[in-house]
């Protein structure tokens, strides 16, 4: 074996996994074995790496504490009927999208959102589809733009509706908006790192959709209330 074929201890590391997995080509295998024969320390290293790998592969699942499942259950139960729970918690019922009719500026927006198949659906169970294939990114950008536009317009309507809601309701809604904005920020950060990542795109559209629906609920709530009347919380 000439000098070019000789492995150093450092270069052995690169070939180690392929060698241990039996996937090294013949030339690499020969070079590794030649190095092991002449090296005073690498055979011991190899044996220890073999032991660590073997023990690592044998690690088993770890059961989480029982209360994790209870916390998952609680969060899912809070999320699933998100629209209904909002209204129930506030002691109100919705009259549906008719409540939006007095807000003429919002009517066209409802059509936009309807086209995205989000209106009236349960937020927790209906994330928007992100198509696969070459057109997926364009569809994502279109959906994001429509959501962003919808949010801007709904935000104006919600700001106008705010004074008709009591302080507790406004605070509760704002807290949820803050949570959603945080999720939107996280998704945008992830997309800045990997613009084409389908999961991050889905997360962003889901968070934007949640914000649209919550703002719609805000506007809808205000539409249920006679101007100048404060909501009485239960």
């Amino acid at each position: 074996m000439n000098d070019d074929q000789m492995l150093t201890c450092e270069r052995l590391v690169d070939a180690l996994d392929d060698y241990l997995d039996g996937q090294a080509d013949a030339r690499t295998r020969t070079a590794v074995e030649a190095h092991l024969e002449g090296c005073p320390t690498c055979p011991a290293l190899l044996a220890d790496v073999r032991a660590i790998r073997g023990a690592a592969r044998a690690l088993t699942p770890i059961e989480p504490p029982a209360d994790v499942w209870r916390r998952v259950q609680a969060r899912v139960h809070l999320e699933v009927p998100v629209r209904e729970s909002w209204l129930e918690r506030l002691g109100l019922s919705t009259r549906g999208w008719g409540a939006l009719q007095p807000l003429g500026a919002v009517a066209g927006l409802v059509l936009v959102v309807s086209s995205l198949a989000w209106v009236g659906t349960r937020l927790a169970v209906a994330p928007p589809p992100v198509a696969d294939g070459s057109g997926a990114h364009a569809e994502f950008q279109l959906a994001e733009a429509e959501y962003t536009d919808a949010i801007a317009r709904l935000q104006e309507a919600a700001d106008a509706a705010g004074p008709r809601l009591d302080a507790l309701t406004n605070a509760t809604l704002q807290s949820s908006i803050d949570d959603i904005d945080s999720a939107i920020g996280d998704a945008r950060e992830a997309l800045a790192r990997e613009p084409g990542d389908a999961l991050s795109q889905e997360n962003l559209l889901e968070a934007l959709g949640s914000k649209v629906a919550l703002l719609q609920d805000t506007v809808s709530l205000a539409g249920d209330i006679e101007p100048g009347t404060e909501v009485q919380n239960p």
Binding site: T41, A44, L45, D48, I52, G54, A55, L59, T60
Partner: peptide, 18 residues
């Protein structure tokens, strides 16, 4: 530091590795 002989047992205890 480099070692001339293996320093680990062939079977490492799971809890130690974790």
């Amino acid at each position: 530091p480099a070692a001339a002989a293996p320093v680990l047992p062939e079977a490492i205890a799971r809890i130690d590795l974790e």
